[in-house]
């Protein structure tokens, strides 16, 4: 471990390498986590199928490459496909669990996650798939960085900006925010909250789908890879807190960087442990902060 840390000091170029690579993938983590925060915050549904929707989006991209469509163009396609699918899932399942207690929604979305995994396995088989964009590698000095990672970050940023603008300015965006603040008051004021919920869930699915396209281009996808994306999204949202968009962005990029550094320093087997360890630290710090705050109020 100390050998690995000393490498980073002796040859700082590798520290920069890890930093850049981490930042470049952080954008994808932000997308999936933002979607989760949206559904969690607005509907109080903890969507355990989050990662599986990401993977589903990845398979849409893969299917597009089979049809000869470039995976970049698959991004809007996956967005639309997953939006429609998300709406359908809401109407069929989520609608019935929105008002129930937490465990009902956890169970329902867990079931959904299993369903997506097995359906993908039946259709595409268990081998890993890649939607190859064919952009090659970018050389900056001694650094070699896959160009697709830059493209991915750019696309993630564009998508994120669009969503933020939409939430701020559009009528539906305002309705979503109003519902998240107080669903009863929103209903009194004439907002069709059922429709808002449906739209929110569908939007989340669409964001996941887009993130999945990026995952399929940058890494690879397999029917059972959803879980790790779900875990990342939950970690980010938990660390950042609900309804804290800047927090989600910082936590997402931070997670990308920290995963790379901890993999380098402690070895790949401890990368996830290091990430969860960091989450524990963040939660402890928060707890103490709140504790102090409470004393002041008292």
């Amino acid at each position: 471990m100390f050998d690995n840390i000393s490498i980073l000091f002796q040859a700082p170029i590798f520290a920069v390498d890890l930093l850049v690579q981490g930042l470049l993938i952080g954008g994808i983590f932000v997308l999936a986590a933002y979607g989760l925060a949206l559904v969690w915050g607005v509907m109080n549904v903890k969507n355990l199928a989050q990662g599986d929707m990401v993977i589903l989006g990845g398979y849409v991209a893969y299917q597009c490459t089979l049809w000869g469509i470039h995976p970049i163009l698959a991004l809007p396609i996956a967005f639309v496909v997953l939006f429609v699918l998300g709406w359908g899932v809401y109407a069929a399942i989520i609608r019935r669990v929105v008002d129930r207690d937490m465990f009902t929604s956890l169970l329902a979305t867990f079931g959904l996650s299993l369903l997506i995994q097995q359906a993908l396995n039946l259709r595409f088989g268990p081998e890993v798939k890649i939607a190859e964009a064919g952009f090659g590698t970018f050389d900056i000095g001694e650094l070699s960085i896959p160009a697709i990672r830059f493209v991915g970050l750019g696309l993630a940023a564009v998508l994120a900006i669009c969503i933020v603008l939409f939430m701020r300015n559009s009528r539906m965006g305002q309705a979503i925010r109003a519902t998240s603040q107080d669903p009863r008051a929103a209903r009194v004021l004439g907002i069709n909250t059922d429709q808002v919920y449906a739209f929110t869930y569908a939007l989340n699915a669409a964001i996941c789908g887009a993130a999945g396209v990026l995952v399929a281009m940058i890494w690879n996808i397999q029917p059972f890879y959803g879980l790790v994306h779900s875990i990342r999204a939950f970690i980010i949202v938990t660390a950042a807190g609900l309804g804290n968009l800047p927090g989600v962005i910082v936590a997402g990029f931070g997670l990308g960087v920290w995963e790379n550094y901890s993999g380098f320093i402690f070895g790949a087997e401890f990368a996830v442990a290091a990430v969860v360890g960091l989450l524990v630290v963040v939660l402890m710090v928060r707890l103490f902060q709140m504790y102090r705050l409470r004393q002041v109020v008292r």
Binding site: I7, A11, Y225, V228, Y261, G263, G267, E269, A271
Partner: peptide, 19 residues
């Protein structure tokens, strides 16, 4: 290095290889 089961990124291991 021992890679996780849901392996899709080896960047940190390969960076070590480079070093």
């Amino acid at each position: 290095d021992k890679l996780p089961r849901d392996l899709s990124d080896m960047t940190s291991t390969l960076t070590k290889v480079k070093a």
